[in-house]
Simulated assay, not measured.
Amino acid sequence: MSQAINLTAEVTDDQLGFRLDQAVAALFPDYSRSRIKEWILAGLVQIDGKVSSTPREKVFTGQLIEVNAVLKDEVTFVAQKIEIDIVYEDDDILVINKPAGLVVHPGAGNSSGTLLNALLYHYPNIAEVPRAGIVHRLDKETSGLMVVAKTVPAQTHLVTSLQARQMTREYDAIATGCFTAGGKVDAPIGRDKVHRTKMAVNHTAGKDAITHFRISEKYRAHTRLRLRLETGRTHQIRVHMMSIGHVLAGDPVYGGRPRPPKGASVEFSEALRGFRRQALHATMLRLEHPITGEEMEWHAEPPEDFKALAAALRADAIEHEKQLDF
């Protein structure tokens, strides 16, 4: 059943100068920032008795904030016994190492068998947290570190931290082509104007997106990179690398058919063609703990298929150098 809620609180000195959405989130931490924004835009939030539908409106000490909204029943997802690789856990957060092939959240074509279904099984109380505590996502075929909130206050803080770019995420990737130096891609990302299931650099309607990268290892016709995100747009690394002419190895959406370098052995060509997902792994995560404030950092080695691809590329490069010496 739907539930009517009526919330009232005064802005304190701690929220002086906050935007309305920030102040409401601080005053009523049991509700997510996305839900609060929806309420504001729907005209369900008042400041001193006057409706405000502007999330960015500034608030001041002593103002009375009122929320009159209805909590609608959300879609119920089924708990499923799916193994989770837990890197760290306490009362407030989980850090997991997601395998490639696991969808994070149910959606069209993936109503079950997701990380969310697994979280509901292992942590039944997490059903009380929006999106089962999921703060950010990784693409289905991207492996690596993710943080999950076990409580509403922890999720609210982590989402705010993510939006403020205070969370550091670094990735290990293998891209096609040869890089001469590291750099930065600063290009907005939005829906592809033709293929609506894909993303693209979009200077007219895209959202700002920044990716930093440096070289980890050079191969004959590929480069291993370490990348750091400033923003978290859908498919950001994959789109940014494509935009500078260096698609990720194996990327089934943005990469096209793999092209082994000239003179490649049959074994190496098969290894390259057999890697059928984007070579991308979330290898480092650093954040401020949402409750204790402690700075924490985790690392995760890439999975075996990624290591095998890197080893094959390395062996090919060494063999090519030997042939040049003759």
Rank of each mutant, 00 (worst) to 15 (best):
I189G: 03
S53D: 14
M1Y: 01
V95R: 00
H212A: 00
Q15L: 05
A173G: 07
R277L: 01
G206R: 08
E297I: 07
Q80G: 02
L272A: 10
G43D: 02
D21V: 04
Y88F: 14
Y121Q: 05
T54G: 00
A4C: 00
I65C: 03
T12F: 03
L102E: 07
G250W: 10
A9Q: 14
L162C: 04
L41E: 14
I40H: 08
T76H: 00
Q236K: 12
F179Y: 09
E294K: 15
E230P: 03
L27G: 12
L313E: 02
V78T: 15
E57L: 10
P188E: 03
V194F: 10
R19V: 05
V148S: 01
A282I: 11
R196S: 01
V11P: 12
T114M: 09
S32K: 01
F77K: 02
G245W: 01
M284S: 14
T283N: 10
I5W: 01
D325T: 12
Q278K: 07
Q15V: 01
R165H: 15
T114I: 08
V185T: 03
T156Q: 12
R33H: 11
K58R: 15
I134F: 05
R257M: 11
Q80S: 06
T8N: 12
K307N: 12
H235F: 02
R191I: 08
T180F: 04
K184Q: 13
T151S: 15
K218V: 07
G101L: 06
V78D: 14
K262C: 04
I215V: 15
T54W: 00
V247G: 04
E74A: 12
L44D: 08
E295F: 04
P55Y: 09
P106T: 11
L138E: 04
E321M: 13
R233G: 13
M284D: 15
H240T: 13
A164L: 09
D14K: 13
V24P: 07
M167N: 14
N97I: 09
R259Q: 13
H289F: 11
V129K: 06
V59D: 08
Y121C: 01
S2Y: 00
L64C: 07
K307I: 05
L94Q: 03
E301I: 01
I5T: 04
L272H: 09
R259V: 14
G232L: 06
D208K: 11
R131L: 06
S161F: 00
H105Y: 06
P124C: 04
V247M: 03
Y88D: 05
G109Q: 11
V59S: 09
Q22E: 10
L71W: 06
S216T: 02
R220L: 14
F275A: 07
I318Y: 01
G17A: 12
A25Y: 01
D316V: 00
N6Q: 13
A312M: 09
T61A: 11
E128Q: 15
I174R: 02
G183A: 02
A173D: 10
E319K: 11
F213I: 05
L313A: 10
D85E: 13
F18T: 00
M167L: 15
T168D: 13
E74S: 13
D73K: 13
K322N: 10
H212E: 10
D316F: 09
I134M: 06
G245L: 08
H105N: 10
